[in-house]
Nucleic acid binder design. Structure first.
Lengths: 247, 247
DNA sequence: AAGTGGTCTAGACCACTTC
DNA sequence: AAGTGGTCTAGACCACTTG
């Protein structure tokens, strides 16, 4: 963990860089076996930043449940939570989720359409009803096992002059939005439910009796701007974890 | 929003008190219509605390998705998120969840048992396999509609000299743990899935085809100490929302 | 008594957006 | 140029836990 590593980290703010660094060190680095983190003043000195920045970063880690800070004791690591990999409260691309548990991700059965927005989608994406949206349905595989069926809807206007039909929609939608629309997804507001879905989706996911987990979500970029509406159907291939906090 | 209100707020740390205050003001108080919050220096002056504390509190609000802080612009309120009421990433007692959406909460079909912990529960609660646990099953109603079936398991030793069979188990388990064991639940690690449950549970919840949402959770008090293992089966009476963040 | 995190002061400069 | 949030300095004291 050297100072010069920090400048190359993701994130524009120093505290987010330190946050990422500490998460990495907690998961697989020099704190991979640690039950405590060093004192705030120590960390500040080691990483060459002020205690302010360290406290910001530790605050982020605490919010994510990775650590607990206790007066008089120190910064205690919560290993149960550091070691989780499929967290429902973290927004990831489908590919990253699949790779995160050690499988090769791929997509097939891709259907690309352009449609007018219905009332529901128009409201969610804050666009006019009837405005054109691009809808991409696909099936995601983990290795050879079908694991997710997704329907992603994006306002056509976000593509500007880009011809969306020429893009490779087997790529993660996050990447398309980032490369061709210059938009970065920061978070998503998600509704969770259990469903039997449609016979078509059940067939594609190769399930029989078993119900599916449905995530209906609106994804936002900077300043709460909605840019993506999606439905994702999950088989029990994934075991989603979630930290629920008292407020 | 007066200074003397602050001292009576919940939480021991000043920043958590300010956090609660600001959430209340954002939901139903003087910022209920606000698109922005005042500048940090202004808030600090108004509330009689330093900018440090304000920044801690705003950090909490940002982490919960209520606001976004932008350099050069200010603190922007995310009304979509402030106005949510059933958040899956917030840990609430069943009663509070039901009352939160405007219904009267009650419990029936209560079954109380004492059992030895099986391997799974022993591991989750960090107790010896075979150690005695108290299991309380019940059905929660929203008004007259069955909405949740829950199974709560607590290590017997936590009750010390208290005779648990004499307690009123229609009360929230949080309250029993707090009053009789002196333990406060801070958060829970939850596994989310879709299930058809058992015929008994389906019958009690009065559902036909519709699958249920299952939350399997371990609840923790201070220093990551597990004190409660529970299974909760939810009908589609609840519409759970969740903020998923990119990290 | 020593060490920890939580709060505070009273500034300062930087990066960014808006006017 | 003015105002915002992000970072920083160089301290200080308090509340709490441990030796």
């Amino acid at each position: 963990m050297e100072k010069n590593e920090i400048s190359s980290l993701s994130g524009s703010l120093m505290s987010t860089k330190i946050t990422s660094l500490l998460i990495r060190e907690l998961k697989t680095g020099i704190y991979a076996q640690a039950e405590r983190l060093p004192a705030e003043m120590e960390l500040a000195a080691e990483l060459g930043v002020s205690r302010t920045v360290i406290r910001d970063a530790l605050g982020n880690l605490e919010n994510a449940g990775f650590i607990e800070r206790v007066r008089g004791i120190g910064t205690v690591v919560n290993r149960n939570i550091v070691e989780l990999n499929s967290r429902l409260d973290f927004k990831l691309e489908y590919n990253d989720m699949i790779q995160g548990i050690g499988f090769t991700a791929s997509a097939d059965n891709i259907i690309l359409k352009e449609e007018p927005a219905d009332e529901n989608i128009a409201e969610k994406l804050e666009i006019d009803q009837g405005a054109r949206i691009v809808c991409c349905q696909k099936r995601m595989l983990a290795g050879t096992v079908p694991a997710i069926y997704s329907i992603d809807c994006i306002p056509l206007e976000l593509f500007g002059k880009v011809n969306y039909t020429a893009l490779d929609w087997s790529q993660p939608v996050f990447d398309l939005l980032s490369h061709y629309c210059g938009l970065t997804i920061l978070n998503s507001l998600t509704s969770v439910s259990a469903t039997n879905a449609t016979p078509m989706i059940r067939a594609k996911l190769d399930v029989k009796e078993q119900p599916l987990l449905l995530l209906e979500e609106v994804s936002f970029c900077k300043l709460n701007r909605p840019i993506l509406y999606s439905l994702s159907f999950y088989t029990d291939f994934f075991h989603f974890s979630l930290l629920r906090k008292k407020f």
